[in-house]
């Protein structure tokens, strides 16, 4: 199989790789670039554990061909903390006990960030809508919804 060259920005740093044509973005992130924050759950686009942001839009990395990301800006949960300081969503998830086994957490946080980036003051229904493509088998979702709302409140307090 032919290899293709791809370049993109991952969490602010430039990456360039040769990958087999047809390789998923998830495989490139995890196996070439050692970013393990997106998880391979169902590998069919139903569980949301592999969610990443591509040019600010939420995408399922398991269904995204890496070569379609040429020149794109990619953000993952693994890149949210800056200089050891956690992102408000990460703080809210920890403080709100919104993670148990942790497998869904990276995708949940990415889906939540996509929401807060376009709607900094979401309603409970907005949060439910935003995470409805992400499966969690531990928490019963309630602590996650609470954490996203808490992060939104913390953001608005910081800006005020």
């Amino acid at each position: 199989m032919a290899k293709v060259a791809i370049r993109f920005l991952l969490n602010g740093s430039e990456k360039a790789e040769f990958v087999e044509s047809g390789t998923t973005l998830l495989d490139v992130l995890r196996e070439k670039l050692a970013d393990f924050s997106p998880k391979g759950g169902c590998l069919q686009g139903t569980c949301g554990a592999c969610s990443v942001l591509v040019d600010g839009e939420i995408r399922l990395a398991c269904l995204t061909l890496a070569e379609t990301c040429e020149g794109c800006t990619i953000e993952t949960a693994g890149g949210l903390a800056k200089d050891g300081v956690l992102h408000p969503l990460q703080i809210a998830f920890a403080d709100g006990f919104a993670t148990q086994c942790g497998f869904c957490t990276g995708g949940m946080i990415v889906a939540s960030k996509a929401l807060l980036d376009r709607n900094p003051a979401p309603s409970r229904e907005d949060v439910i809508e935003a995470i409805s493509g992400n499966v969690c088998r531990c928490t019963g979702y309630e602590p996650i919804i609470g954490a996203v709302l808490a992060a939104a409140r913390a953001n608005s307090t910081n800006k005020a």
Binding site: C42, Q44, I128, I131, S132, V135, G140, Y141, E142, I145
Partner: peptide, 17 residues
């Protein structure tokens, strides 16, 4: 045949708890 088709309630199906 797998957990993709094994139904559980999602965040839109929550009961007031």
């Amino acid at each position: 045949t797998d957990f993709n088709e094994y139904l559980m309630p999602g965040p839109g199906d929550l009961a007031q708890t």
